[in-house]
Design a protein around this nucleic acid. Structure first.
Length: 906
RNA sequence: GGGGGAUUAGCUCAGCUGGCUAGAGCGCUUCCAUGGCAUGGAAGAGGUCAUCGGUUCGAAUCCGUUAUUCUCCA
């Protein structure tokens, strides 16, 4: 009997004990960072516990606490060990997972890390010592590194020699990237197999061998080196500890399960899914996979949305969309969920994790709504795709039928709708399957499934080949080369002084070259800079840096983590020495107006619409401000007007800016400042207040001294961006003035054109109605004209050879009229044979019309006749057997047309 | 950032290689039928075929621009 059965500990307790344990060892417990990253070009999502502490390791900033522990939401959807398409197939991969971790920044090192890890696992969690294995770094010749004896000796105090293994550089040496902090690591693995299994094969032989029940649970990283770009390792002055323990696996080990999905982390979700799908988990592989996929994916999707990442068609948003759609697909195919269902899991999940990650529970309605809408939209996509696929399949059948049509085959096809069909030897080309996928978003596995049900094969290789083409195309377009940082003098700290100054005397600390779309650019880091880097929605500053003999334009300023980077197109010839750095003042000033106005808008919206309004996105530049916020209905004109009025009132009050820097976050919250979900805040924050009773926000942006300089605030548009998210675009100051003046100018112009009517809109309304009725009258008039011409032609008709012959030259206003006349006469005579040579606005046109009965005899073909006749007017033409037209250039040829027509008729 | 598709009546969509007087279903209006309702019958209104430009004798259809939107890849 497995040991674990005796232990009962739920996941919440396991998490609590971890945090409590490290708190008792002097660690500060911090909240999880958001799942979605901003300001990091190398990463879309937080994929491990250390991500939020990256800057501490890189030396860009210093941690206030030497010891920290937390549980971190992580998301992994790509990479060597975890492909999205694999999650759910096995029992231990996940998209979102929690990583428990403890850190030392220049404080304790290997001894404490190892002792505490052992104590927690064996004393607190009471995991059996003989089932635990540890690995230590076994050295690497290339890097000239020996075995990590230090760690090995420390482990020997607790662990039997045959439970300690050596690992290679791949498994036991951790690196942040190509260059940067790194060091050996030590992993703890656990053997969860039954005693019988263990007897057959020793646990140590299965460590690091992808066995689902002999798994790594904790990785202790000892950061002691810095790898230079050259590849050389140098020892770090401050050594750090970075550990990460997979929470779901830990729960599996402690709760004595053989699958992460069997723990109470996933079970409530899975039971709910199984209940509504009306299946039992554990009875069928296919439905089990589908249940796991849904239970897993809803976690990733819900928390990503709660952290501010809406599903979209680019970047991180696209990843979220893909995850959700994969869940819908599995539910649709294997659990028969044809209606939106997944959104109902959100509340269950929110409740389950309310105490650890309150952000989801606090935004329950919003997240549920977004998921629901996204589900609906994908189900619509599926429906359309199925229809298209059916069309394709029908086509394939038809082609097939042309070749082999026997009663037996027909019978087979007719039966094929009922379920399993005999293979028919028809293949759906990969190109078509790919087209369905690429253009219409219809998943390949559904294509195969449906095709197979109808006895059709799908060319998988062809599909994969098309997919490859698409990938290489995208890659080729996205080539971006980033060079190494090159130091200019000493590498020091970079300081931002742009809140108080627009100019500075600066030195270049380092620079690097980047190549994008064959364009070479440079990135500079200054020791102190007045340039504001794009952040919080506000655009980065532009401007220049200038030395005694040269001037370099800064075309953009961006942030990478906490580093402020100035983009330039050229590099100064002389990098050393002082530069005069100057920000483009007018752009900054206009952006500041818009940014402060955004704060006023935010406050006004909460005032008018309610407290559920929260910022979901923001863009502030020198021209416009765009503000996305949670709200479930379109705003009425009254609401918009009211918001505008409130903001403009606040502008006229000329409220002075109250800016407080370095406010402890707790104090800021007490002031009433709202923290945004998905935003990462430090220990100390900046608080921007315009009237403490009106607008208090945490913000790093630049602001005007008093609201009066906004001048005027004008909302330009209100629209929807996603389910439950509205967008307002507005302008301020000169922008608002231009907007209003522009609108008035258009109105003035229109009024002048209408000769200044009292009520312009009524006047225009009348004008439109009049136009409509005139058009109708004209139509009637034209019809009458055509009838006259028709009657004229009827009179000139000759009975000959048993048909009614009309050969005439005439003048009509349009090609349409000619057509009308021709059809009119066709309805009148079923033995009609008519050639009309028309002058339309001085352009020659010929029409040949043949009556229904005459057409049936196939004696004459209008299309062929008109081609022949067109030669006479230097033109060409064609049409159908009974009606054809031709146009040309030679107006004088019209008479010849009639002569030729007579010859043709004979 | 790079591909692919779509845009036709109030809505959902047909309209294949340029020439069938631009269609269907639902909805709408009017009339008729039934005790009422579900509904049935008849007639009718409603379209700059997204936009601008080009090719052509002729463009909803082919080519390019812009806009909007869907979708895939990075």
């Amino acid at each position: 009997m497995p040991f674990e059965r005796k232990i009962k500990m739920d996941s919440a307790t396991i998490r609590r004990k971890f945090l409590g344990f490290f708190e008792s060892k002097g660690h500060q417990i911090v909240p999880s960072a958001p799942l979605v990253l901003k300001n990091d070009p190398s990463l879309l999502f937080t994929n491990s516990g250390m991500v939020q502490f990256k800057d501490y390791f890189l030396g860009n900033s210093v941690s206030k606490y030497k010891r920290i522990a937390d549980t971190q939401k992580c998301l992994r959807v790509s990479g060597k060990h975890n492909d999205l398409e694999d999650v759910g197939l096995d029992t231990y991969h996940h998209t979102m997972f929690e990583m428990l971790g403890n850190w030392s920044f220049g404080d304790y090192f290997k001894k404490e890390a190892i002792e505490w890890a052992w104590e927690l696992l064996t004393e607190v969690y009471k995991l059996p010592k003989d089932k635990l294995y540890v690995t230590v770094f076994g050295g690497d010749k290339g890097d000239n590194l020996p075995v990590d004896e230090e760690a090995q000796d420390l482990w020997r105090r607790f662990v039997l020699e045959d439970h300690i293994l050596h690992g290679n550089k791949k498994d036991n040496f951790w690196e942040m990237g190509e260059a940067g902090p790194c060091g050996p690591c030590s992993e703890i693995h656990i053997d969860l197999r039954s005693d019988d299994e263990i007897k057959k094969k020793l646990g140590r032989e299965l460590v690091n061998n992808d066995h689902p029940q002999v798994v790594e649970i904790w990785n202790l990283v000892f950061i002691q080196f810095n790898r230079l770009a050259s590849g050389v390792l140098e020892p770090l002055p401050d050594k750090h500890v970075d550990t990460g323990m997979g929470f779901e696996r830990l729960c599996m080990a402690i709760q004595g399960k053989t699958s992460n999905y069997d723990t109470d982390v996933f079970r409530p979700l899975m039971d709910f899914i199984a209940l509504h799908a009306n299946v039992k988990y554990g009875t069928d592989t296919k439905t089990d996979i589908a249940i796991r996929v849904m239970a897993d994916h809803i976690r990733a999707v819900s928390f990503a949305i709660a952290d501010g990442q809406l599903p979209s068609n680019t970047g991180a948003g696209y990843v979220i969309r893909r995850i959700l759609r994969r869940a819908v697909r599995y539910g649709f195919s294997y659990l028969n969920f044809k209606e939106p269902f997944i959104y109902r899991l959100v509340s269950l999940l929110a409740l389950q994790l309310r105490d650890v990650f309150p952000e989801l529970h606090k935004q329950l309605d919003y997240v549920t709504n977004v998921v629901h809408e996204e589900e609906k939209s994908f189900l619509r996509t599926l429906e359309k795709g199925i229809r298209r696929l059916d069309d394709f399949i029908t086509e394939q059948y038809e082609e097939f039928l042309h070749e082999v049509i026997t009663p037996n085959v027909l019978k087979e096809i007719n039966q094929s709708g009922t379920g399993k069909a005999e293979p028919l030897n028809i293949t759906l080309p990969g190109k078509i399957a790919f087209e369905l996928y690429d253009t219409f978003g219809f998943p390949f596995d559904l294509t195969s499934l449906i095709a197979r049900e109808k006895g059709i094969d799908v060319d998988e290789k062809g599909f994969a080949a098309e997919m490859e083409k698409q990938k290489s195309r995208s890659k080729a377009a996205a080539v971006k080369e980033t060079g190494d940082w090159i130091l200019v003098g000493d590498d020091g700290k970079s300081e931002f002084i742009g809140y108080d100054h627009l100019t500075a005397t600066s030195r270049i600390l380092k620079f690097r070259k980047v190549k994008q779309k064959n364009k070479e650019m440079f990135q500079l880091v200054l020791d102190k800079t007045p340039f504001y880097a794009e952040s919080g929605g506000q655009v980065g500053d532009t401007g220049f840096i200038e030395s005694a003999n040269e001037k370099i334009w800064v075309i953009d300023t961006k942030k990478e983590n906490d580093l402020i980077i100035h983009w330039t197109e050229t590099l100064p010839d002389k990098l050393e020495g002082e530069f005069f750095a100057s920000v483009n003042e007018s752009k900054r000033r206009l952006s500041m107006n818009n940014h402060s106005a955004t704060h006023l808008l935010h406050a006004a919206l909460r005032h008018v619409l309610g407290k559920h309004v929260e910022q979901k996105g923001s863009l502030v530049n020198e021209k416009i401000l765009r503000f996305d916020f949670s709200h479930f209905a379109p705003m009425t004109d009254e609401e918009i007007a009211k918001v505008e009025t409130i903001v403009n009132e606040k502008v006229r009050e000329n409220i002075p800016l109250d800016e407080k820097r370095n406010v402890p976050i707790e104090k800021a919250k007490a002031l009433g400042a709202m923290a945004l979900f998905g935003e990462k805040y430090g220990e100390f924050v900046r608080v921007i207040t315009f009237d403490p009773k009106f607008s208090v926000e945490l913000c790093g942006g630049t602001h005007i001294k008093a609201t009066g300089s906004i001048g005027m605030f004008k909302i330009v548009s209100e629209s929807s961006v996603a389910a439950g998210v509205r967008r307002i675009e507005a302008v301020t100051a000169e922008g608002a003035e231009d907007f209003v003046n522009g609108s008035l100018a258009v109105l003035d112009e229109l009024k002048t054109l209408m000769k200044n009517p009292k009520d312009p809109s009524a006047f225009l309304q009348g004008l439109l109605e009049e136009k409509h009725s005139l058009e109708k009258k004209l139509e009637v008039f034209n019809q009458q004209l055509a009838n006259q011409i028709k009657e004229d032609l009827v009179r000139k008709a000759i009975k000959s050879n048993g048909h009614t012959l009309i050969l005439e030259k005439l003048s009509v206003p349009s090609a349409d009229a000619l057509k009308n006349i021709a059809y009119g006469l066709r309805n009148q005579f079923d033995d009609l044979l008519m050639v009309l040579a028309a002058d339309i606005d001085s352009k020659p046109q010929v029409a040949v019309m043949i009556g229904e009965k005459l057409e049936a005899t196939k004696k004459f073909h209008a299309g062929n006749m008109v081609k022949e006749l067109a030669k006479e007017i230097d033109g060409g033409g064609g049409g159908q057997p009974f009606f054809a037209t031709a146009g040309g250039k030679k107006l004088e040829g019209l008479d010849a047309v009639l002569v030729r027509a007579k010859e043709l008729i004979g």
